[in-house]
Write a protein that binds this DNA or RNA. Structure first.
Lengths: 149, 149
DNA sequence: CCTGAAACTCCGTGATT
DNA sequence: AATCACGGAGTTTCAGG
C-alpha cells in the first residue's frame, strides 16, 4: 500500500475531524471531489482506516477517574476465559497481554475512587485465575493522540 | 446536562460510525432530521462530544508494537518540562501522571522491538530528570473500546 | 422540543480523457 | 488516476405549532 502526499492530507484531515466533507478536502487539496472519493475508498479497502468514531468526553458523563491495572495471573489461569470476564466489565476499555511484571494489563474508567474500588474488589479481583493486582491511578493526562502520519 | 434516550441513540450511532448521516439516524430514531441536527448541536456545545476522528490502523502503517512505559523521576525533576520533552517524541501517544510505583506512565507505539529500543534509549532515557524506566510490551490487545453510554 | 419546507451543499457513479 | 456532469441525498436554517 502506497500513500502519497494527497492521501496523507486526506488522512490528516479526517483524523482531525472525521465529518469533514469530502468536497471541502477536495478544495483544500486542489483536486476534484470524485478523486478524493476514489482515494478514500481505496484507503478504506486497504484496511489502513479502522473506522470513524465520535469521541465522548468521559468526564462530562461523570467518568473522572482513569486507572491502569496490572494483573498477575495464577499459573493455571486460562487467558481466554480471563479476557471473556474482563469484557463483561464495562469500565474496562483496554486490555493487553504483556511481557514484564504482569500478565494482563488493563485500562479502566470510573466515576470516582469509590467506584474504582468497587470494580477492583467486586469485579476484577473476583475473576477466577487472578492472583494479585496493582493499580496506578492517573491524576492527570497530558498527552492523548494518534500516531502521526 | 440531561441526556435522554434519543440522545443516547444519536451518540451510540456516531460512536460506532462518525460519518453516519444525520438523516439516517433520524429515520432510525423516528424523528425529523432537523430535530437530530438540533440535538447534536446541543451535545457538541455541552462538551460531551470531544470530536470525530478517523482511526488509523497502526499496524497497517508498520507500527506493530505497543508498549507501556513506567517512568521514575528524580526528586528534583520538573513535571512540566518532562511532559514537554515527551510531547516531542511522536511515538508517545498517551502520558499520565500517576499514583503508585511510577510518576509518569506513557503509552508508546513503535514499528518493532528495535525501534522501541531506540526510542527508549535515545529519547526517553535521555530526558533530564528521568531516573529509571520499566517497560511492558503488549503482545496482544484484546479489548479496545470507549465507555458505554 | 418538534416539524416541514426551502436553499444550499455534498455524495456516489458513470462516462470520458 | 483524474475530470465532468448529474440525480439522489444530506445539511442547515427558519417559521411555526
Amino acid at each position: 500500500m502506497k500513500i502519497d502526499g494527497i492521501d496523507k492530507k486526506i488522512i490528516r484531515s479526517l483524523v482531525k475531524d472525521a465529518r469533514t466533507p469530502i468536497l471541502s478536502i477536495a478544495r483544500e487539496v486542489g483536486i476534484s471531489g470524485a478523486a478524493i472519493h476514489q482515494r478514500l475508498r481505496k484507503l478504506e479497502k486497504s484496511k489502513l482506516i479502522d473506522g470513524y468514531h465520535m469521541k465522548i468526553n468521559q468526564s462530562s458523563i461523570g467518568y473522572t477517574t482513569t486507572s491502569f491495572v496490572g494483573i498477575h495471573l495464577e499459573p493455571t489461569a486460562v487467558l481466554s476465559s480471563i479476557i471473556k470476564r474482563l469484557k463483561e466489565i464495562p469500565e474496562v476499555v483496554e486490555s493487553h497481554y504483556t511481557t514484564g511484571n504482569y500478565s494482563v494489563f488493563v485500562k479502566i474508567l470510573n466515576k470516582n475512587n469509590q467506584d474504582l474500588m468497587r470494580v477492583l474488589e467486586t469485579k476484577i479481583q473476583q475473576i477466577n485465575g487472578v492472583s494479585k493486582i496493582e493499580t496506578f491511578v492517573s491524576l492527570q493526562q497530558q498527552i492523548d493522540r494518534q500516531i502521526h502520519i
